[in-house]
Structure formats: C-alpha cells, structure tokens
C-alpha cells in the first residue's frame, strides 16, 4: 500500500507558464517559465518565484503588484487555487484529450496579476492557502471518523509540519503525521467525483458530486443460509453506479465513461477504502475525474 502512496507522491507534471500578453512589455511574447512540479502541489506556491521571474517584463510596477494577486488560467478558464495541480490537469486537460495514451504535455498555463475581466478572485495568500488545506484535511477526517477529533488533537507543531511537508514534498514527515489521522475502520470515504461538462457545455463548469459513501456494503451471502447478510468492501464502480446509474450502468465495466485518478485510469473494481488509505491527494481526498469514452 505504501508503494502506491510513494508512486502517487512521485507523480510530477511539467508546466509551461507564460505571462498574459496584455500584462507583458514584450510585444511578441516573453520566455515561458518551465518547471516540473509534483502533481500534489498547489499553484499559489509557485507565485513568489513566478513574480520574480516575470518582474522585468511586467507592464505594471512589480513593486506595487502583490505577489498573491497572481492567478492562472488554462484555455481562458481561471483555475481554482485550492485544488492540487494534478487534479486541475485531469479535470481540464485529460478529460477532453483525444488520445488518453498520449496526453498533451506540458500543462500550458497563463499567469495574470491584473483582474481585468472583473473576475471574482480570492488572493491565495499563504495563510489563506494553508487555511483552505487544513479545512480540507478536517473535512476528510470528519468523513473517515465521524468527528474532527483526530485532526483537532494534533499538536500545533504537527499541524504546521503537515502543511510544511506538503510544501517541501517530504513524504516521510507527511506520513508520520497523516497516518496518525487514519482510523482502524473508516466510517465514510472522502471522495469527490468531478464531471467536466461535455463539448457543447460551458467549458468553465465542472460538476462535483459528493455523498456519504461507506467503505463496506451489505450483500446477501452467496451460498449461505437464507437472509444472511455479509459486508463486502465498497468498490469505486459500485459507488458510482449508486450515485450516477445513467453514466455507470455497470459497476464493473466502464461502458460510457472511465475514471481517472492521478492521471491514470483507475479500475472500477478498486476497493475504495484501499484507495482512500494510500492514493489520496495530500488533503486526504480522492479526486476522481470522469472521462467520457469517445
């Protein structure tokens, strides 16, 4: 299981970040900033170095342009700063890529500092991002245990170190703290299903489906006495079939759509509790992106 977690943490994504042409002194286009980042990383963490890199070509005075006013767009869609970069890529790029075997890389992003189009943005200051991360960890904790006690009983130092380990991509520290939050048995699975809209839909809209999904389901015991009920592990396919029967008519075969986690297709037969122990994003959530079969 920890092998799976190590693989998830090792996942990286190449980014090509350009400054919005309307904010750039160089008419044609300035050099892009190229970087390979962990899929579990958050975009606002890149802002200080991007601000420094693009300062010489910024039309606005860089000294009065707040670093954390920076935001990113992909294909003109402003990206949610509180979602991990890998999840954003799966939602916006993989879900609409023609050939899943050769996904378009790098992830091409445009950086903006001016809010010219009247977008309603939140400046992802370090405290705001940290707060959003901890809230997300708490929410996952609440789903797993039915209380927020495990996270509330973390020492302040461990709580800070948990966020620090995500920023410095330090799996050893992360594991030490995070594993103390995991209960023996889960009450519910922290899972969100992202449904990007179809080609005719509005490209900015993503539907997010969330429900209380227990890790086991009762099923009639095969071959046992009449009326005997046993508990079997909940699979991804069974959960999706329950939530969206029209998209997932079968709990075993991806008839109309497939499910992507960390850039890879995840089999519908996967047991959710196993995934939720080892293959979550750093905040403890499984972010499953539904990709329609073409």
């Amino acid at each position: 299981m920890s092998v799976l977690q190590e693989r998830v943490w090792a996942g990286r994504l190449p980014l090509e970040i350009r400054l919005a042409s309307s904010e750039c002194r160089i008419y044609d286009q300035s050099d892009p900033y190229l970087i390979s980042v962990p899929r579990l990383c958050y975009l606002p963490l890149l802002l200080p170095r991007l601000h420094a890199f693009f300062s010489p070509v910024l039309i606005a005075d860089p000294t009065t342009t707040p670093i954390y006013d920076g935001y990113f767009t992909y294909d003109s869609v402003p990206l949610k700063w509180h979602l991990p970069i890998g999840l954003l890529y799966d939602i916006y790029v993989l879900s609409s890529s023609q050939d899943p075997a050769t996904p378009p890389l790098p992830f091409k992003l445009i950086l903006h500092f001016q809010n010219g189009s009247g977008l309603n943005l939140i400046s992802a200051e370090p405290a705001v991002l940290h707060d959003a991360f901890i809230n997300s960890v708490k929410e996952a904790d609440f789903l797993r245990t039915g209380t927020a006690k495990p996270i509330m009983s973390l020492s302040a130092a461990d709580s800070r170190a948990l966020w620090g380990s995500v920023q410095s991509h330090d799996l050893a520290t992360y594991k030490r703290i995070y594993n103390s939050l995991l209960p023996q048995t889960f009450r519910n699975i922290p899972i969100r299903i992202y449904l990007p809209s179809g080609p005719d839909g509005e490209k900015a809209s993503i539907k997010v489906v969330q429900a209380h999904i227990p890790p086991t389901v009762s099923s009639a015991a095969g071959g046992g006495g009449a009326g005997r009920i046993s508990m079997t592990p909940q699979t991804l396919g069974a959960a999706l079939r329950g939530l969206m029967p029209s998209l997932f008519p079968s709990s075993r075969t991806p008839v109309l759509a497939r499910t992507v986690l960390h850039g890879a297709v995840v089999p519908l037969g996967s047991q959710l509790e196993e995934l939720a122990r080892s293959a979550t994003y750093a905040d403890g959530w499984l972010g499953i992106v539904v990709v329609m079969n073409s």
Binding site: H82, I122, A127, V128, H130, D131, A132, I134, N135
Partner: peptide, 9 residues
C-alpha cells in the same frame, strides 16, 4: 484554525 473560526472560499 489557521485564520480563526472564519475561513474564505
């Protein structure tokens, strides 16, 4: 919490 009991999202 990090920012007190009030968060922004």
């Amino acid at each position: 919490g990090v920012m007190g009991g009030i968060s922004i999202a």
